[in-house]
Design a protein around this nucleic acid. Sequence first.
DNA 1: GTCTATATTCCGATAGAC
DNA 2: GTCTATCGGAATATAGAC
Lengths: 213, 213
Amino acid sequence: MVTVDSTEGRLIGAAERLFAEHGVGAVSLRAIMQAAGTNVAAVHYHFGSKQALLDAVLRARIDQVAREREALLRELSGAEVTVEVLAEAYVRPLVTVLGSGGEFWIRLVGRLLAAGDGELAPVAESFLERNAAFLELLGRGNPGIETRTLHFRLIQAMRLTLNVLGDIGHTRRLLGEHGWSTEDVVEQLTEVVTGIFAGPPGQRQPRRTRNGN
Amino acid sequence: MVTVDSTEGRLIGAAERLFAEHGVGAVSLRAIMQAAGTNVAAVHYHFGSKQALLDAVLRARIDQVAREREALLRELSGAEVTVEVLAEAYVRPLVTVLGSGGEFWIRLVGRLLAAGDGELAPVAESFLERNAAFLELLGRGNPGIETRTLHFRLIQAMRLTLNVLGDIGHTRRLLGEHGWSTEDVVEQLTEVVTGIFAGPPGQRQPRRTRNGN
DNA sequence: GTCTATATTCCGATAGAC
DNA sequence: GTCTATCGGAATATAGAC
């Protein structure tokens, strides 16, 4: 584990913020070092290159998300499952990350996902593995829907969750800043994810099932 | 109008592609000039700065989207409106842009929207103005839902549409590349947007109405 | 493990010829 | 309207002292 006070930890923290705010390509290593209060050589010693630093930033919080998701999936397995519950379970781990100072990380991941290049590889893999378990649960509640459709919907839910939580301030700005607390945004987001999971009204099957134990 | 063969047109085309693929901050003016087959001075002559070039790129296709949307809204006014029809109308203009070589433009706009900084200003304004008309139609079909909720959903639909259409190849890659044609992606996307507009199953009102003429 | 110093390349921007 | 040449500064990366 890397302590936040170490040179390495401060570099990761500064890079996380600057990458999220200005984009990976727009941030120079010098700017990161300046923000971290170190010198030009430190990042090359600790990470070797800009890409390696980015990887370290991405990995720093991925385990937290993975553990949260696993815990929620354990809760859900064997219980009654609705799209509402699944949406809640899908969004909540990232809300937790948000609450523990992870807004920049979330925005960065959302940015990279929208960029569509390979920089995201380490995070994408972890997310997609976890998605497989969700996919199974989602399929249980929507027996009539093709798996590839559910897969598509999961990815879009992930996109949206990252983009919305990654910039609550931006969302508030787009909406006119009137009466949108973080909790409001999370609630609205969860409703939208529920709608994504459920699909068009005409297409919907009976929404709840009990797993076969 | 700027012809695509002129130096100005080639600069805009090259910038559109490179900005979309690597991010605005990661692309140097020199790279753009090289791709456009011109020299270092041309962009300063034609645009004055990197930001001005970005603005020109964004504006180049915004009118097309705006006109498409207006035409669709005219079709819809006075007709029966369902969330399915609204979703179709919301997605289609960008599909048209996609079909006329606008994938890079869409990806760029989606990227900037995910980035959340002010670079998007010229496009965001145009989109949000147009959203107002959609908001009215959406409210007609969902009388029980708060306007701010519908506004939120509209913005998320825009986000998703831009991100999905802006990188069909990436979407296909995330989904395993099996049997996803562009038409498939558009169809799936439209279903998801419909789900977003409709919201959670439990929350749904009678979905269709006739406007008061 | 952290620093200074430096090598080398590339950046945005402008001046001035044509 | 398009070019070459070039300025001043900043970038990545490394070498080597401590």
